[in-house]
Nucleic acid binder design. Sequence first.
DNA 1: GCCGTAACTTAGAATTGGCTCG
DNA 2: CGAGCCAATTCTAAGTTACGGC
Length: 631
Amino acid sequence: GFYPSPKHNKSSKRECDDEEFEYKPKKVKTENDKKAKKRKQEYEEDEDDEVCYFFFFLHMNFCIPPQVLLAWEEERYTDGSKWRFLEHKGPVFAPPYEPLPDNVRFFYDGKNMKLSAPAEEVATFFAKMLDHEYTTKDIFRKNFFKDWRKEMTPEEKSKLTDLNKCNFSEMNEYFKAQSEAKKQMSKEEKQKIKEENERVLQEYGYCIMDNHKERIGNFRIEPPGLFRGRGDHPKMGMLKRRIRPEDIIINCSKDSKQPKPPPGTRWKEVRHDNKVTWLVSWTENIQGSIKYIMLNPSSRIKGEKDWQKYETARRLKKCVDRIRAQYRDDWKSKEMRIRQRAVALYFIDKLALRAGNEKEEGETADTVGCCSLRVEHIKLYPKIDEQEYVVEFDFLGKDSIRYYNKIPVEKRVFKNLQLFLENKQPEDDLFDRLNTSILNKHLQELMDGLTAKVFRTYNASITLQQQLKELTCPDDSIPAKILSYNRANRAVAILCNHQRAPPKTFEKSMQNLQTKIDEKQKQLSTARKQLKTAKADHKASHDDKSKKAVEVKRKAVQRIEEQLMKLQVQATDREENKQIALGTSKLNYLDPRISVAWCKKWGIPVEKIYNKTQREKFAWAIDMAEDDYEF
DNA sequence: GCCGTAACTTAGAATTGGCTCG
DNA sequence: CGAGCCAATTCTAAGTTACGGC
């Protein structure tokens, strides 16, 4: 079965002296167990029941007193339904627009001009972004101006014809002053806001799905603003319109208390579709795509799916050798489409490339994945820098992040690539007889549930496991072991090309750290001198007092050494991380059980690896994995 | 097969909030 | 006790995949 056998009462052996004690009882064990047992009996008696009951006992990593188990029974459905009861309060709408005070002026061509409320609102979106690079880009300005004009009155429209003559600087300063004022608010005022936020969270941030109260991921509707696409996005700067109740589709169960639209409004639709997991949806106006409100990653429904993802990747592990042998063989196929498929799969496997769907030209930034690579994205070098059969990749991937890599490939792959490039223009598809649908259909035949993205998950997780084995030194201190963990994580982030812009304050923060290190080094040499003196004193006097003094000094040296080491490790880690984002792989690609097992094996508190949110998301893994877990 | 749509995962940037240090 | 810094959290864009209709 997919679910692990229940583990009972493991919490009793847990220690309760964690720094961070958090206790979230949901159900008392006895009650829960009885109910679960009854359900199970019912299920066994009635095999034809559409619902399959499983029992998944999960306790969090936090301390749980032995008499109360954080255990919940879980239900899985075999008919494709995702829940049978769903109740929630609907979304929280963006606050209405507040017109600017009269003293905040807008100038056109040097002349003060009072804007109508709708035009003013859109103007403020631009004014707020004045310091952002976006507002200097032609496309952004063009799209903004076009959409802004749509909100203007006829008079405004006829007057305002050139964005370059618009002066938003007073508006911009006003908003800066506002955010400054917000920072300067008194403690009491800040506390009040915090309490209000908490109240909204309590009211709208949770739903009931089947028998559980679950945290909702994004219960606030996206406020209106200017669209910020990534990379060279043809739609950047367009107006993202305000979402009203009339745009909203509510999804909940028939027998639930339905959410009420704000007074005087109505929902677009209320439906009861238990084949999907979303609670609220609306259509956005930039791409015409649907947006959803769904549950938080800590929820049962997301956790199970996540777990399933890693189980699929583990099944790939079992047959990856066969699949690799197969695609190598296919490099020799007499059919071009099969060769293309095999070479693409090789890239996906070896380089962890994304599948690469076709995209509508002119609607989005020009980015590609494996199947959508074009001739212009690769260069072939029969021989370069002592290496043979080198392929150079240079393209923009998801989020317009550049993928650049130069790798030697097998001769057969190289020859195939030469073949694929024949008689093609730079803008032609490299794999002209392949797309993601064809590839995924093929993969499905090789293994149940196999798709292109499973390779990324598999290769990421197996790399972490293997790197942890290689890099962890048993005798290292905890900070050193954590550095090793981060390095293993980093290897994965590099494989998956998870990059980030170097933080704006990077240089400065490195300098600060270096200053700290220098100070610590001075401290250390002072402490060492003092130890030496103390030793000399002791040698001279041989009394108890001087002996104690030596011990004290020795301890001080030791402590400072440790602190210094910690700082140095931190500096190394930060430097190596300059342009690499670890979060994405940690959150989406690395089987959390590998990390949990590693923590258990080396006695590292799991809090050192996962923060609170991550521990909530990976609660299932923290509960499940023992120190000998193998991906 | 092809195409459009829906649902869901994955992504980096922006913002927030809490802690440390002077 | 306030400023500055960094980690955590939030935000929402941008992918992948499944599927239904032709």
